Amino acid sequence: MTGTAFTDFRTPRSVLFMCRMNAIRSPMAEVIARAALPRGTYVASAGVRHGERDPFVDVVLEEIGLSIGRHQPRTLDELEDDYFDVIVTLAPEAHHVALELTRSMAVEVVYWPTPDPTVAMGTREQIVDAYRAVRDHLSALILSRLAGNGLRKGA
């Protein structure tokens, strides 16, 4: 973890998930967090670079009753708001950019290393399994570190 941890264990009021292209990991985390966090929590996602929507994200989210809706990948420059209680980075490049952007801001930056499922090879089922693993990894982290108990030290 980078930065200081929340000491009052509250659920953050606003969360930004960042990855490289806002096509897989960060939008998946955004959708899962919206479902898991209390109503009124502002959740967004963005990428360091512009990406293309990935249809496998729809497949694995629909399996757990969630939908990415009309989400289109967006960069940090395209965000409507730029203040967040916590920024969760999911890829090394995003983490470095977040640290640089928040150098003079009172915002928590947390790094959750998350594999890129696009590197998976094999059958369609093997590829979808890689996306499922990312979905399940993000769900577990969101539920254990953000939902209910808030961001905990060591997150």
Rank of each mutant, 00 (worst) to 15 (best):
T41P: 01
A133K: 08
V48Y: 01
F56P: 02
G47S: 14
Q72M: 14
H50K: 15
P38T: 09
V86R: 00
M105H: 07
A46K: 00
V15G: 12
M1I: 09
R10W: 04
G65Y: 04
L146V: 12
M121D: 11
R34V: 12
L37S: 00
V128C: 08
R124F: 06
L143I: 09
A133N: 07
A133Y: 03
E80W: 01
D116N: 14
S104W: 07
A94D: 06
T11Q: 11
V110C: 04
V119Q: 14
L37T: 09
T41G: 00
P117C: 04
L101W: 11
M18N: 01
V43F: 06
Q72R: 13
N22P: 13
E80Q: 08
R25T: 02
F56S: 02
M121E: 12
F9T: 08
F56Q: 08
H137L: 13
I142E: 01
L151K: 00
V31E: 06
G69A: 15
D82M: 13
E93V: 09
D82V: 14
V15R: 03
A33M: 00
A133P: 03
D54R: 09
E52Y: 05
R13I: 07
G122M: 03
I24F: 00
L143R: 06
T102L: 01
L37I: 07
V60E: 08
R53D: 02
V60N: 12
P27Q: 00
T2G: 10
N22S: 15
P113N: 12
V110R: 02
A120C: 13
R53Q: 11
A46N: 02
M28S: 01
V88Y: 04
A94K: 03
R13N: 15
R10A: 13
A98K: 04
K153E: 14
V48R: 00
I32Q: 04
P12I: 06
E100S: 15
V97L: 15
G150A: 03
G154T: 07
G47C: 04
A5H: 09
Y131C: 00
S67N: 12
R70M: 10
Y42H: 13
A36I: 01
G69E: 11
H137F: 05
L76G: 10
H95K: 15
E100I: 04
P38R: 07
M21F: 03
T7L: 10
E30P: 06
A130V: 09
P38H: 03
L99R: 15
L143C: 08
V60R: 09
H50Y: 06
Y83V: 15
I142C: 04
I24L: 07
L141M: 10
L66V: 11
G47W: 01
M121K: 14
G148C: 11
M21L: 10
Y42V: 14
D129H: 03
L143V: 13
D116A: 05
A94G: 14
S104D: 14
E100N: 15
N22L: 10
D77I: 05
I24W: 01
M28R: 02
I24R: 01
R132T: 13
S144E: 09
E93D: 14
A130C: 07
R13F: 06
S26E: 02
M28L: 11
L143Q: 07
L90N: 03
P117K: 09
K153F: 12
E108H: 15
I127A: 07
A130I: 05
R70Y: 06
A155T: 08
L16W: 05
V128G: 13
G148T: 05
